[in-house]
Simulated assay, not measured.
Amino acid sequence: MKPNIALIRNPKFITLWILILLTLIYILTFGFLNNVSNDDTPTAPIVYEEFKETYSKPIFGTMNYSEYIPGTLPLIISIPHGGHLFPSEIPDRKQNHPNVVKSNDINTQEIGRKVADKIMLQFKGKRPYLIINHLGRSKIDVNRPIKEGVEGKDSTTSIAWNDYHNFMRTAIKDVEVNFGRGLLVDIHGYALSAEILSLSPSQINANPEIQSGSSIRALYTRKSSNLQFTDLLYGKTTSLGGRLQSHGYDAVPSHVHQHPLEDEKYFRGGYCVQKYGSRHAEQIIDAIQIEIPRTLRIGNKQKRENFILALSESISWFLREYYG
């Protein structure tokens, strides 16, 4: 089960869809899965004057196709689908794998950077780790295995794919060494379906396979003496979805919307969350995938800024509550 939170019908606006994939669910067909801006210029990171001395300079991969900013919090924010670079020398992806998507999640890079900056303000200069892919999704998809994420055996895109995941592993190792536990938040802008959320709370809490297959397994293991699994999944005062709901954004899962409606799309979590989340017993970094709907990413800038504030506050609360 992978934590995914979805923000849907917003009582403030018309019909809002935000799917924060608390990627707690990882399922096989009917069972539980055991496998594993339109602007061409990337948004520059904000360096607040009062925190300038503590700011880590970005580290770039080959050809500046990936970017890594070391952090000082047990929080990693990854942005795989917000790249603005489409070099002609890199072939477009042409694979026919199921559900292959080649369009960018527009403005996710801008949102992810700003969320990281707002979190830094909340923690008085301490920053999340930030990992950004700068290549467009038609050229590379770092949220898929390499055989699906790059076209053919082109050395440039293969190196770029490996750079991104080397940065992920570097950040994860750093968090493990310095903090002993941590959280990975993967930011996206699309959605598909999931079934386990439709089970009753008692069915979910009674099934150890759901809990052990979750990308926040480590968190539940630490908190299982005083919280049930569904408390972390969609509790009113104990889940990330519940916190976002308190800001007026309908989230799935949350205490208001425990599961998506029959005709609502909901994504169960991609390659990065599945690979690096704590559903693997030897891993201690929990992972949550956040799906932000187009209505919040495109168009009304003030609406987007309001959401960035709500999301950064909610993640900051979750970090303080469960990661110290």
Rank of each mutant, 00 (worst) to 15 (best):
M1D: 02
L7E: 09
I8D: 03
K12A: 12
L16A: 11
W17D: 13
L19H: 08
I20E: 03
L21Y: 05
T23G: 14
L24R: 13
L24G: 15
L24Y: 14
V36N: 08
S37L: 13
D40G: 15
I46C: 01
I46D: 03
F51A: 13
T54Y: 00
Y55C: 08
I59K: 07
I59E: 05
L75I: 10
D105K: 07
I111T: 05
D117H: 14
F123P: 04
G125E: 12
N133V: 10
H134A: 11
L135G: 08
K139Y: 07
K139F: 04
V142C: 02
V142P: 00
N143Y: 05
G149C: 09
V150N: 02
E151L: 03
T156D: 02
Y164M: 08
H165N: 04
D174E: 15
V177I: 15
V177D: 08
G182L: 02
D186F: 06
H188Y: 08
G189V: 14
L192V: 13
A194Y: 02
A194F: 02
L197C: 08
S202C: 04
N207G: 15
E209S: 11
I210R: 00
S212I: 05
G213W: 04
S215E: 06
A218N: 15
T221F: 10
R222S: 14
S224I: 13
T230E: 06
L233A: 14
T237H: 14
G241A: 14
L244W: 02
Y249C: 07
S254Y: 05
S254L: 03
H255M: 00
V256Y: 01
V256P: 00
H257E: 01
H257G: 03
H259T: 14
L261Q: 07
F267L: 05
Q274Y: 11
Y276H: 07
Y276Q: 02
G277F: 07
D286S: 11
A287N: 09
I288Y: 04
Q289F: 07
Q289I: 09
E291P: 09
I298M: 09
E305D: 12
N306C: 02
S312A: 13
